[in-house]
Design a protein around this nucleic acid. Structure first.
Length: 186
DNA sequence: CCTCAGTAGTGCC
DNA sequence: GGCACTACTGAGG
């Protein structure tokens, strides 16, 4: 007769997330990784804030600080924020609904220094009417900078540029990308 | 500037 | 299943 596995064995099933943080001029950056890749790149006003953000997004995960293990990932993101010469290259573990993953993958195809609209993106993924839903997916996008939702704009930029309410931390990034490309090509 | 309806996906009950 | 949200859009004040 097999006995019930002891508690320590079941720990293997726990979803472990390791995180590291860094400081950019746009705010505190947090990168979290699990066994299959990066599960979150978050930006916020302070270290406690981004950690709380991570905890609320992954309530069922065990969250462990790992500054050394995540250091190169964090540095990759910080380098991009400072001077976005190329896209952030991190192996992502895309966690979301099928629709959300579709949107996030499509957003990753938008070339650096260019923009598109929610409507165009919706059409691209074959859901031309699901414009608001695309906006929803961008809202909950946990992969800041890596999935560059800041390149997705309102169809009428005069009405809204990126986040029409609240946090517009991503807003400088499009201009910064253009500026970096301009310098590179001059 | 404003509101409004139509819209599709998601989360919570 | 219902209901209430949206980083939307286009039309109409």
């Amino acid at each position: 007769m097999r006995k019930k596995p002891p508690r320590t064995d079941r720990q293997k099933d726990v979803d472990m997330l390791y995180y590291g943080t860094g400081i950019s001029d746009l705010g505190t950056v947090l990168v979290a990784s699990g066994a299959k890749g990066v599960t979150a790149v978050l930006i916020g006003g302070s270290r406690p804030e981004v950690i709380t953000d991570l905890e609320s997004r992954f309530p069922d995960s065990e969250i462990v600080p790992d500054p050394l293990g995540q250091e190169t990932f964090v540095q990759e993101v910080l380098t991009y924020i400072e001077a976005p010469q190329r896209d952030v290259d991190l192996k992502l573990d895309l966690r979301g609904t099928a629709f959300q993953r579709k949107v996030w993958q499509a957003v990753q195809m938008i070339p650096l220094g260019t923009t598109t609209t929610y409507a165009a993106l919706a059409a691209l993924i074959g859901h031309p009417k699901a414009i608001r839903a695309v906006g929803n997916a961008c809202t909950v996008n946990p992969y800041a900078f890596v999935v560059p939702c800041h390149r997705v704009l309102h169809s009428n930029p005069a009405l809204s540029f990126g986040h029409h309410r609240g946090n517009d931390r991503m807003r400088p990034m499009v201009a910064r990308e253009l500026e970096t490309l301009r310098k590179k090509n001059s």
